[in-house]
Design a binder for these strands. Structure first.
Lengths: 216, 216
DNA sequence: ATTAAAAATTAGGCTGACCTAAAAATAAAG
DNA sequence: CTTTATTTTTAGGTCAGCCTAATTTTTAAT
C-alpha cells in the first residue's frame, strides 16, 4: 500500500515519462511536485526499495510494472471523480482538479468500481482525457490537437489538456465548451497561430493554445 | 486547518463527550482511537494550543466552540458520504463506515454542499443518525431506542447505532432493515431481553441489542 | 490517613516526509 | 581536454505523530 506521498510520486512519474516510458529526471519531478531535489532523491530510493520504480542514481527513474499499475489506478480514480464532479454535481470544468487530487487517494476498490458503474463506465473524463480501466489499460483514441488541423477543416472540441487551471479558465472565458464545433479559417505561417470560427465569432488562438485543445 | 489526525481526535472527543459536553478522559480517547495514552496527551496539548479544545492535565478535555464546529463539519461529511454510498452506489448498510472514514477528510466546502444537494439535503444518514447542517447544528428528534418500548407496542426501525460493524452485521443477519415494523411481544423482567415479532418471525433480542436499535 | 492500584504525564526514541548546505557526478563551454 | 556550470546526491536537521518505559498524580481500599 503506497502512502499518499508515494502515490503522488508514482503519478508524477507516470505523467512525465509519457507513453514511451522514458526515464524521468530528479529535477523534473521536483518541479512537478513542488518540492526540492533532495527530497525527490530520498523518495526515489524508497520507491525503488519497494520495487515500484527502477532507479539509477544520476540517470533517472521509470516505473516498474507494479508501479505503473498503482499509478494507473490513482489516475483512474482521479478521472472518475472528475467525471462525477462535473456530471453529477455540476462543477465547472476547471474547478474539479484540486478536489480530485484529494479524492484520488481514497482506497476502496469497491467504491471505485461502483462509482464507475454509477457514471456509466466512462472512457474519457470531462477534459477529454482517457480513463484507464481497472487493469490500468488506457482506451486509445486518435489524439488529435487543434494545432494539427489545417485551414478549412471543421472539428468538434473533444477536450483540453488537463492540469493547467489557467488554461482551463482561458478556454472557458473564450466560451468554448466540450462538443462545440470549430472551423479553422486560417493558420498564420510565421507563428502557427490560428483564426478559428466558433459559431458567429472569429477567435485567434496561439499555437500553444491550439496544441492544448483536443478535437475529433 | 486541522490535519487528518487532528480531525480524528476532534471527532472522537465530540462522540465521547456526548450532547452534554462532559469532559473526556485520556484513556477513553486512547481506546477509541486505538492509540496509546501518551500519544493522546501529546495531541491534546497541541489541540489546546490551537484553541480547539480546553484541556486540563489529569482532568480531561472538552471541545471549544471552534473545535466543536470543526468536529461537526467532519461528522456532517461522514454522514453525507454514507448516505451517498448507500443511496447512490447501493452499498450495504454495514459496509460504508470504513470508506466514509476516509471520505470525511476531503476538504472542499463546495463539494460538501453540492453533495448534500445531490442527495436532497438529507437530515439522517442510513443508520438513522442525524446529519449536522453546515453550521454544525443537529436536527433533533426524539431518539427512542427499542429497549424503551414496552410490550405490546408496534414501532418502525429508524436506524441503529453507528460505529460497531459487528452489530450492523448482526442486525442485517436477523433480516431487520430500515423502515421495518417490529412489535414487542414481551420483555423478560430478569434481563430485559425482548421477544419481538418481525413479520412472520419471532426474534429474541438482548437488552444490549435493543438499546442499539432506534425506533419511531 | 496511609497505602496500593489505576490513570495520566514526561522523557526519550523512531519513522516518513520534508528542508538547507555541502560534496560529488555529469554536462556544457572554451 | 580542461574548466565551469548544472544536476544530483549526501549529510545533517526539523516536525508531526506515533511508540515504550519511567515518573507523577489521582483514585480506591484498607
Amino acid at each position: 500500500m503506497p502512502s499518499l506521498s508515494e502515490e503522488n510520486y508514482l503519478k508524477a512519474i507516470l505523467f512525465l515519462s509519457g507513453q514511451a516510458q522514458e526515464p524521468v529526471s530528479t529535477s523534473e519531478l521536483a518541479a512537478r511536485l513542488e518540492t526540492k531535489a533532495a527530497s525527490v532523491t530520498e523518495m526515489l530510493r524508497r520507491l525503488a526499495e519497494k520495487k515500484w520504480v527502477e532507479y539509477r542514481p544520476y540517470k533517472g527513474v521509470y516505473l516498474s510494472p507494479a508501479g505503473r499499475d498503482l499509478a494507473a489506478k490513482v489516475l483512474r480514480k482521479h478521472r472518475l471523480w472528475e467525471t462525477f464532479l462535473v456530471e453529477k454535481l455540476h462543477f465547472g470544468w476547471e474547478e474539479v482538479h484540486e478536489v480530485a487530487e484529494q479524492l484520488e487517494h481514497i482506497s476502496s476498490p469497491k467504491l471505485t468500481e461502483r462509482l464507475s458503474a454509477f457514471l456509466g463506465h466512462p472512457e474519457y473524463d470531462p477534459h477529454g482525457d482517457p480513463i484507464p480501466d481497472p487493469n490500468g489499460v488506457f482506451p486509445k483514441r486518435p489524439k488529435r490537437t487543434l494545432s494539427e488541423v489545417p485551414a478549412g477543416e471543421k472539428v468538434l472540441v473533444q477536450g483540453v489538456r488537463d492540469g493547467d487551471s489557467d488554461f482551463l479558465r482561458y478556454v472557458r472565458q473564450l466560451g468554448i465548451a466540450l462538443g462545440d464545433e470549430l472551423e479553422v479559417e486560417a493558420v498564420q505561417p510565421f507563428d502557427q497561430s490560428q483564426q478559428v470560427r466558433h459559431g458567429e465569432r472569429l477567435l485567434t488562438l496561439s499555437a500553444i493554445a491550439a496544441a492544448n485543445i483536443y478535437v475529433l
